[in-house]
Design a protein around this nucleic acid. Structure first.
Length: 453
RNA sequence: GUGGAUAUAGCGUAGUUGGUUAACGCGUCAGAUUGUGGUUCUGAAGAUCGUCGGUUCGAGUCCGACUAUCCACCCCA
């Protein structure tokens, strides 16, 4: 009895049939990022636990209850990254890249880990595309980041299904004032709030705004709004951002309730929201984090970025029936009759591959049975099939069957590559010529004796 | 951490008020005369009905516990 081992809770296998979707999203995002001048960066899956505690925030849910932390030999503890920004910021500082010509722009596609109860659009291992920009405090940088995310979604055909929400949570100074105002507002209602919100009132009053319990919502409806408390600089910055987005023709809603759960955000925060993937509507989230680099390195360098969840994006894509590029399939399957022919097919397949074709032959050993080989060729969606047996080896001619039409075209075995190239691509490519002598030798025929005729 | 739902062959499902050989579709494999796929027809393999315990003459069907999965709260990508 085989031992049954299941994949860990909250993880997902991405099977061959799913790969085209992933490749489409990955390739397209990377291409757009590169158009915007972002370069790819890869950082470790695990980092020193302290990095996340200091960047994401020691009171955040992510740090307090969702991290996968392992203790290593010695006293070190490491944590599987719950998000991408922290590690990238660390790498930019450590490498010194952050001090080179500003702005520095990087992107990444990585798996992240959070110990949560899985549900639709929420996994313990999930993948994000992320982009970060360092060294610009200008609202143009904020707009650039948003425009880049917008461009990716647009090119995927999703712009009608994903809404952009933006907000500003100000700098530490104006946020502190706002926090006080919020506390003052909610304090009289303390007993009417839900239990978690009563805690929030002391710990993180900003969170009171996006509680979903009806009572809290009702109370929060009359709460003061962050935007009214922004200092002149922050208010101006946000105003310019809105103007630039409008210039680009990007539609957005100002949503004072967007708060973001990661502590490092300042000023601009935004989300792209889809309504059709269950409760997890936020496909993309991002914003500015002007104090994070200082926090980690002592150098005050403004920065900002965003990330989107590949799983959530793909769910949205699927819900709208958006088509993906097909995975490449076998160009030619060489069906063999008998062991001798099979050996020749193996060698021929090898030469075909060297000439750029995807070629396969019978690896099972189906002997002289053609039908199962045809079935298999059909199953793997081979574009062409060539049956080779003693007759073909005798006459040096075979037929290439086009599997979509059933048409058969004669082909010379001793000129196989050229003839096949002719059939698949009549205009011809730059195939490396394979000599008649070589093909004959592959087929086990002595060119000398063959020449006499 | 808290709720709700579900759990039958590789996958998707059916299984009437508990009654004896657990059904169907897809998939897999094999045939339908001699070396040719996709359609059709025939046949075969494949399930200790999530696990453990209980009620009963008898349980896939009822009860309980456990486990797993999904959905939601929470949180966020």
């Amino acid at each position: 009895m085989a031992l049954k081992i299941k994949r860990p809770k909250g993880t997902q296998d991405i099977l061959p049939d799913d790969i085209p979707k992933w490749r489409t999203v990955e390739n397209l995002s990377a291409a757009v990022a590169e158009q915007f001048g972002f370069r790819e960066i890869r950082t470790p899956v695990f980092e020193d636990t302290g990095l996340f505690v200091r960047s994401v925030g020691d009171t955040s849910d992510v740090v307090t209850k969702e991290m996968y932390t392992v203790s290593s030999k010695g006293n070190d503890t490491f944590t599987l990254r719950p998000e991408g920004t922290a590690g990238v910021v660390r790498a930019m500082i450590e490498s010194g890249l952050i001090h080179e010509g500003a702005p520095q722009k990087v992107y990444y596609i990585i798996p992240c880990y959070r110990h949560e109860r899985p549900q639709a659009g929420r996994l313990r291992e999930f993948h994000t595309f992320g982009a970060e920009m360092f060294g610009s405090a200008s609202p143009y940088a904020d707009a650039e980041i948003i425009l880049m995310a917008h461009t990716i979604f647009e090119q995927l055909g999703l712009s009608d299904f994903i809404e952009l929400h933006i907000n500003s949570i100000g700098c530490p100074e104006c946020r502190a004032k706002y926090r006080e105002a919020l506390k003052a507002f909610f304090e009289p209602h303390r007993s009417e709030l839900c239990p978690t919100c009563q805690e929030r009132l002391d710990k993180n009053p900003l969170r009171l705004l996006d509680c979903k319990s009806p009572e809290c919502r009702e109370i929060a409806a009359g709460a003061p709004i962050m935007l009214d408390y922004l200092c002149e600089y922050c208010s101006d910055h946000f105003g310019q951002l809105k103007d630039i987005l409008t210039d680009y023709g990007i539609r957005f809603t100002v949503d004072p309730k967007i708060v973001r759960g990661l502590d490092y955000y300042t000023n601009t925060v935004f989300e792209f929201i889809s309504n059709e993937i269950g409760a997890q509507g936020t496909v993309c989230g991002g914003g500015r984090y002007d104090n994070l680099v200082d926090e980690l390195s002592g150098f005050s360098i403004p920065a900002l970025g965003f990330g989107f969840g590949l799983e959530r994006l793909i769910l949205t894509l699927e819900n709208h029936g958006i088509e993906f590029e097909k995975a490449p399939t076998c160009d030619i399957y060489l069906a063999s009759v008998g062991e001798d022919a099979r050996r020749k097919c193996a060698l021929l397949a090898d030469r075909l591959r060297q000439n750029g074709f995807a070629a396969e032959f019978d690896l099972i050993g189906r002997g002289t049975k053609i039908k199962p080989q045809m079935k298999y060729a059909d199953k793997i969606k081979a574009k062409y099939v060539c049956v080779i047996g003693s007759e073909e080896l005798e006459s040096l001619t075979a037929k290439i069957r086009d599997m979509s039409t059933g048409e058969e075209t004669p082909i010379a075995l001793d000129n196989f590559i050229d003839d096949f190239s002719e059939i698949t691509d009549p205009d011809g490519g730059d195939m490396e010529p394979v000599s008649r002598e070589e093909l004959l030798s592959l087929l086990g025929i002595d060119p000398q004796s063959e020449n006499k005729e």
